[in-house]
Design a protein around this nucleic acid. Structure first.
Lengths: 325, 325
DNA sequence: GTAGATAGATAAATCGATTTACTAAACCGG
DNA sequence: CCGGTTTAGTAAATCGATTTATCTATCTAC
């Protein structure tokens, strides 16, 4: 059970370990055709499989890229991950995905684990709660790219969407359509994406000369969302439009409306911030803000690859526009 | 930049490497409080981080579990992965996910990569096209569990859903509701799940004394699905019900119906085999066959863990029932 | 015929940990 | 104070590759 080593191959082929290693690394320059064949045969008959741990230990690189997603069941995360994977595939770097589950402790554990395992670089959807750790990575010059969320006071490559701007436009659109009572539903304001979206909302209202009504802003975790929606819709002046700050908020909203017998488009105009796989099937008049997930993934991968190759530029924040549909 | 080794710590603390190693592995039996503190300080001042490659090389285990999913953007895969991850988290084993993208070559590459990287075990959503490789793993006693799809003639632990049975029931339900012309849409019959679902369909029709009309069975890749649906709905006797063999088929169907101005429930009764995240929001009378993804993941993880611990049982196939909703 | 170049292959050091076998000092009872 | 046990710590082998410096034999040129 798995114990054929290079030494065994060398013995079988009647050559030295070094020569076998040369062969494996395709350095055929100074190697006779005969030796090559002998090694080939030996590998075959023994069923030799190289041990990458040993190789990586010596070479100080693993040809592995780590992705730490905030939540693996988010469609956006998986789309980004796939794009990253496709990019690195062409350079024979492999990708592993870990799921931090929006839990800073888990995130920390995974970062430490992946670094201890010597992955060549890291792409992170940061929880934003491990600043010390982030800083130490960056100071040590370890290749890292942040995706989706910005972390304040950190000089690091980041790839994000223009959250404020696209929310602004969506709200503006509501206003143009005559809406005056526009609500905003969001999960706790712990990450930059949520905060920026809220900013866009407020700015759009202000710029249109509308008052920001705190009762129309509901900030709650998903399990508590329905209760908050209940409160929102028992106000004297009910909102006629609502901005759902991401897909999970949207689901909670959908369940709520269904219970109340209300309909999207008819009883409430809704915009959702996110890519939703089945959106085109919903027979309603919803709008969605679509982030260019694939492009963002590819860009993040490129930025990481540059760092790994030590083609150093100064860290920059790449902002992608999103599309309202 | 990252080069503090155990030897450095040992020098700094004025002890030997061995002692530092003992400390790191929490074998404090024969170690004075003073030494312990000196080592602690040394690690702190130097910012030492152990290199797991070296450790794993020696220990011959990596505390890493590999998951190879057929398609990472499938909700079902991510749900299963999360459950697996949760399970192993409690034993301090970490999980990495690789995306084979339903491509046997990629699958092969990832299996070989993960094995070369010495992961302790593998959970695979098999493409079914790498039998030789599967066999060699199993013969070598390498810990493996297959999920979602069965591979013929292979004595391996598998966790699957009762595809035939639940499809049977769904079709039976159609029949009880008076449907006689029931269609079945599926991607190419390359994996067991699709084949078994088709079997359930045929069996239900047969048992009800209905004829299996080959024109009602459409087998096409997603890009070609719409064209095939076109043909299906230009038949003289159009189907009144349709079974979509998975979520991607369902999306294609949804787009098709939208184009034609047809409505779910009204113009066509539909059952979908899969967990669809936004299903509860669709304002239609669709039915879904839900697989117990989390339970399946946990079970697969358990089976793998037993193998890793060498608590050997004979390979078994665990079949989970799914629920029609 | 000899110095130098070249082709083909190897020995040995190395990567950074773990682990086993061993030693040295302290302790302890009679 | 002597032999045996504990306690505390270490040297050296090891894991399985890569890589560098070295070596030998053959070839070439003058």
């Amino acid at each position: 059970m798995e114990k054929v080593t290079m030494a065994d191959v060398a013995r079988e082929a009647g050559v030295s370990k070094s020569t076998v290693s040369q062969y494996l690394n395709k350095r055929y320059e100074y190697m006779s055709e005969k030796t090559k064949q002998k090694i080939e045969e030996a590998i075959d008959t023994l069923g030799y499989q190289p041990n990458f741990l040993a190789r990586s230990l010596k070479q100080k690189r693993t040809s592995l890229i780590g992705i730490i997603v905030a939540n693996i069941t988010h469609y956006f995360s998986t789309e980004v991950s796939r794009a990253i994977e496709d990019f690195f595939h062409q350079y024979d770097l492999q990708t592993i995905v870990c799921n931090a589950d929006d839990d800073p402790d888990k995130e920390k554990k995974y970062i430490e684990m992946l670094r201890a395992k010597q992955v060549d670089g890291l792409i992170i959807f940061p929880t934003g709660k491990n600043n010390e750790l982030y800083e130490s990575m960056i100071n040590q010059g370890y290749p890292v790219v942040f995706v989706d969320r910005k972390v304040e006071n950190l000089d690091v490559f980041s790839v994000i969407t223009d959250n404020t701007e696209s929310t602004y436009k969506a709200i503006q659109h509501f206003i143009e359509n005559g809406h005056k009572n526009i609500a905003f539903a969001v999960q706790p304001l712990t990450v930059s994406t949520r905060i920026e979206r809220l900013e866009g909302y407020k700015k759009a209202l202000n710029d249109a000369g509308l008052e920001v009504n705190p009762n129309y802003i509901i900030e709650a975790s998903i399990p508590k969302m329905k209760k908050k929606l209940e409160e929102l819709f028992s106000l004297d002046v009910k909102p006629t439009a609502l901005f759902a700050a991401n897909d999970r908020v949207f689901i909670a909203l959908g369940e709520f409306l269904k219970e109340k017998g209300m309909k999207f488009g008819k009883d409430l105009d809704v915009v959702v911030f996110d890519n939703i796989p089945f959106s085109q099937m919903l027979e309603t008049t919803l709008s969605f803000i679509l982030q260019p997930a694939a492009k963002m993934g590819t860009k993040a991968a490129e930025l990481l690859y540059q760092q790994i190759r030590k083609e150093n530029h100064d860290p920059e924040v790449i902002v992608f526009p999103s599309e309202i549909k």
